[in-house]
């Protein structure tokens, strides 16, 4: 992280001495709805709660489509089914004792102790202060060690050349990617695309730490679980009903 600091200082000096700045007078560039200028902090921890009792299979298909639309994956032409990215997938599980079948959406669980980050040799896999786990594709060398380490099969490798990516979601051949919890929307105080696509309360998004948030309040009263809780990764994505 030191390097970033140095760079920042450097730019500061550059700004002060030469007065380089974008003068946006009279020019309308891309305008953002709300602009976040302050670094995210660990006062927040973003999370999802997925209630499999309420979540229908159609909901899950809708979530997957919304994710594809928003982030631009799924249109790869050369990759085989098992090579295509899958940021979010539909799983059906049967309880061996009760025979109850539940369907759920599985994506990156945004672990608090993410194995993918621990193993990444170049710091490309990283966790933001607010708990969102991302791949810094500028640093990713495509070694796929993070894919070996992720317990949830959440990551995908881009197997072919891409173009016409979404402006907010750079993606490219030879690097690894996964669910970003729609970080570009979250930073604008919006909700992840998959959550928006579900009409019921089956999927809740919010700040796990905020005691007044719906997700926090719900988690306090209902039975919920983490997938592979035994690994102690303290995931940001929680499930109820399984």
């Amino acid at each position: 992280m030191n390097k970033t600091l140095n760079r920042r200082d450097f730019i500061k000096i550059m700004n002060a001495t030469t007065g380089v700045a974008i003068v946006a007078s009279g020019i309308t560039l891309t305008t953002f709805a709300s602009v976040s200028e302050i670094p995210v902090t660990n006062k927040k921890r973003w999370g999802l709660l997925i209630n499999t009792n309420k979540l229908t299979e159609t909901d899950i298909d809708g979530m997957i489509n919304a994710c594809k639309q928003e982030q631009g994956w799924g249109t790869e032409i050369h990759s085989t089914a098992s090579q295509k990215p899958a940021w979010i997938k539909k799983l059906k599980v049967k309880d061996k004792a009760t025979n109850k079948v539940s369907s759920l959406a599985l994506m990156c669980q945004h672990c608090e102790e993410p194995p993918c980050v621990d193993v990444c040799p170049t710091n490309a896999s990283m966790k933001r202060e607010d708990g969102i786990v991302l791949v810094d594709k500028h640093l990713c060398i495509g070694c796929r060690y993070c894919m070996m380490a992720c317990p949830y099969d959440a990551r995908s490798f881009v197997h072919e050349t891409l173009n016409n990516q979404k402006e907010h979601m750079p993606r490219g051949k030879g690097t690894v990617e996964a669910c970003t919890m729609c970080v570009h929307k979250v930073d604008k105080d919006e909700t992840p695309a998959c959550v928006e696509s579900v009409n019921s309360e089956a999927v809740i998004f919010g700040n796990l730490y905020d005691e007044s948030s719906q997700i926090n309040r719900t988690l306090r009263v209902i039975q919920s679980s983490q997938i592979r809780a035994d690994l102690n990764l303290n995931t940001g994505v929680r499930y109820s009903g399984i």
């Binding site: 799983l91 059906k92 079948v101 099969d153 592979r228």
Partner: peptide
């Protein structure tokens, strides 16, 4: 990988 110990994954993985 064993995603759901005690459960059987029918579909998707």
């Amino acid at each position: 990988m064993e995603l759901f110990p005690g459960k059987e994954v029918l579909e998707g993985y």
